[in-house]
Structure formats: C-alpha cells, structure tokens
C-alpha cells in the first residue's frame, strides 16, 4: 500500500498553479514531509489530496492510493485520514463517541465498544469514553484525535501541522506516538510542517515547495 503523487499541482481555477508540479511516492509506514514558506500552498496540496479543496480551486495531475485514482472520488470514499493543528474532536459527542464516529458500520454492539476501549487504552486514555472532549488536556486530545483517525482504518494519513500547538516536550512525545502507530500499521503519511525537528523525526523524504 503506497501513496503516489504524479505531477500534482493546485491553484485558483483558471490561474497559474501555486507551485511547480510535485511527484512523490510514500510507502506504507513512511512519513514524507512537505516544507516551504507560508502561503506557498502546502496545506492546499493536502486539501487536494484529501478532497477538501474549497470552491474556486482546482487540482491537476494524479493522486493514487493502493492503485486507485483518488481525485475522482468524493472525500468520504477516499479513506484518507487527516490530523489538524487542533484535534477537532466533535464538541457534542463524548470522547468514546468521537472515536466510534469513524468505525465501520459492520462493527456492531459489543465489538464497537471493545474497539473503542482498546484504542483508548493504547492512547493512555482508558476509562475516558464518557468524558467531554473539552475537559481533555492538549496531549490527550491529540492522542484521541489520532485514535479516531486510525479506527476509520485509513489507507493514508495527512498531517497538517498537527504538533505545532504543543509545547516542546509534549511535541516529541506525541510525535513519537503518532509515527509509531503509523509504522506499526504500515500507513503511508504526508506531513506539512514548519519545524525541521518534525521532518527529522519523520525520517522520510522531505519535499521543499
């Protein structure tokens, strides 16, 4: 399973693209890094890959995941997870319901609860299922967000500066937590960051936009 970008470029419709076409192969378990100055379009490229482009922007080139063309599919059918700067846990749902949100329909009843409990345990959040997400600390939220993304069994994961809101120590800890899980599950990942230490820790290809 790998994520492939072939001459991908993004820009406002009918205008020049934001950056030169990008080609890239990310194998399962690898974390590739996108770097570059603010405003160059790193996050826009992630939006295009994940299917979150706003109206008025167009993407050219090909994005392949597990041999399928992604750009033709609607967002929800791509199975590409995203981690944002903020954890973006749904404020109206409990922590457990947030995690269960991405679980496949086929997982029912007790199996559903068990899957959530297991994920919470892996994130060091055992017993947090009934909690209000607003009462979690920053690190706990980040771990819960990763678990929510992983429970949806994504074929690839996009990381949009997910560690930038964390302080230095927590940053290293959460980063290791995320990367370990990605490697263990052989999920290809693409990360946008401004921080060289993130790229170093990722250990994968670094693309300068």
């Amino acid at each position: 399973m790998s994520l492939g970008l072939f001459d991908v470029s993004v820009g406002p419709k009918g205008r020049a693209p934001l950056f030169l076409p990008v080609s890239l192969q990310v194998a399962g378990g690898e974390v590739a890094t996108l770097m570059g100055p603010s405003g160059i379009g790193k996050s826009t490229l992630l939006d295009a890959i994940g299917g979150h482009l706003v109206y008025g922007f167009a993407v050219s080139g090909r994005v392949e995941l597990a041999g399928r063309d992604m750009l033709a599919l609607p967002t929800e059918a791509r199975r590409i997870g995203v981690l944002f700067q903020d954890a973006m846990l749904f404020p109206h749902l409990s922590v457990g319901d947030n995690l269960a949100f991405g679980l496949a329909r086929g997982v029912r009843g007790a199996a559903r609860r068990a899957a959530v409990e297991e994920a919470l345990e892996q994130a060091g959040l055992a017993g947090f299922a009934g909690r209000d997400p607003a009462t979690l600390s920053g690190g706990q939220r980040a771990r819960a967000a990763l678990m929510r993304a992983l429970l949806a069994e994504p074929l690839a994961l996009l990381l949009d500066e997910p560690f930038s809101r964390l302080d230095k120590e927590l940053r290293a800890e959460i980063r290791a937590f995320v990367f370990d899980h990605l490697r263990a599950r052989a999920i290809p990942a693409l990360m946008v960051t401004h921080d060289a230490s993130d790229a170093e820790a990722a250990g994968g290809v670094v693309v300068q936009l």
């Binding site: 967002t75 059918a77 590409i80 997870g81 995203v82 749904f90 991405g102 929510r148 949806a152």
Partner: peptide, 14 residues
C-alpha cells in the same frame, strides 16, 4: 469547517 473535513476524512457521507 475543519470539523466537517474531519468527519469526511473519517468516511462520513454528506
């Protein structure tokens, strides 16, 4: 809108 992107990335239909 990020909440909606998060939901879509988790496989939720419109």
């Amino acid at each position: 809108r990020q909440h909606l992107r998060a939901a879509a990335a988790l496989g939720a239909s419109p």
